[in-house]
């Protein structure tokens, strides 16, 4: 589904990603872990098409298409979803109105019929249950005055509405208390299918207790320095990142 080959990216001339290689197949859950500043969020942003990052080398194919060649909205329409670490607020635009615009533009691109108000609302009702999101939030301005937990739930709710094939969760666990973490993870797990894949970007192992990964990759200094099964995450939890840093830094001397 997603194939990343030798990906290099920089921001304002500073290289951040220095040769990422990653293969993701349908049905898989990959966790990307790593210390602060290792490039985890950059990888998420580059895949979503954020313009301030410049891809200097490498290629990314997504379902046979050159992902890097597509603008951000077309990547979204092709099925790439990014759950933001810091979802933005859009004053005066209700979540309902925002999502209806999004869902219909995505459907148009995919050659599906537009949803009228009635069909849209019933779809919303159905998906709202997944993340136990309050109906009242839907008529409020998008993310405006939402608590941290509400914002993250809203991200997963949007993911449910847009039915992506590749979901990238960027530090979705940050700022969540344990209940919210459980609700959000539940939502993500229910959306899992043999046809879609998930990338979970996280600093802590905690989230992976709920969203169990098939593979864990450790990102350090812009490269994937270690890959393994879910046990790798437990090792990291126990020992921290220092032993990996030492391994890498020691080897490169």
């Amino acid at each position: 589904m997603l194939s990343i080959k030798n990906l290099h990216a920089s921001i304002e001339g500073t290289p951040i990603l220095k040769g990422i290689n990653l293969e993701i197949k349908p049905g898989e859950v990959h966790a990307i872990m790593g210390p602060n500043g290792s490039g985890k969020s950059t990888l998420a942003s580059v895949l979503a098409g954020r313009e301030e990052y410049e891809v200097t080398e490498g290629e990314v194919t997504f379902n046979g298409k050159d992902l890097l060649d597509l603008n951000p909205e077309d990547r979204a329409r092709e099925g790439v979803f990014l759950a933001f670490q810091y979802p933005v607020e859009i004053p005066g635009v209700s979540t309902t109105n925002f999502l209806r615009t999004a869902v219909n533009q995505v459907r148009e691109y995919r050659g599906q019929e537009q949803l009228d108000a009635v069909k849209f609302l019933s779809l919303m009702k159905e998906k709202m249950k997944l993340v136990e999101i309050d109906q009242k939030l839907m008529s409020r301005a998008l993310n405006e005055g939402f608590s941290g937990g509400e914002k993250k739930r809203n991200e997963i709710f949007q993911m449910a509405m847009l039915e992506p094939t590749l979901s990238i969760l960027d530090e979705t666990d940050s700022g969540l208390d344990i209940d919210a973490l459980r609700i959000v993870s539940n939502g993500v797990n229910q959306l899992k299918s043999p046809d879609n894949a998930t990338i979970v970007v996280t600093h802590y192992q905690r989230l992976l207790d709920y969203i169990v990964p098939d593979f864990v990759h450790v990102l350090y200094k812009g490269r994937i320095v270690k890959s393994g099964s879910k046990e790798l995450a437990l090792d990291l939890e126990e020992k921290g990142y220092d032993w990996i840093k030492e391994d890498v830094d020691g080897a490169s001397v």
């Binding site: 951000p72 933005v88 859009i90 925002f98 847009l162």
Partner: peptide, 14 residues
């Protein structure tokens, strides 16, 4: 904000 626009783009809105 460019952030607001990108957020919309990421949801498939041009």
């Amino acid at each position: 904000g460019e952030d607001q626009i990108f957020y919309c783009n990421q949801r498939g809105i041009d």
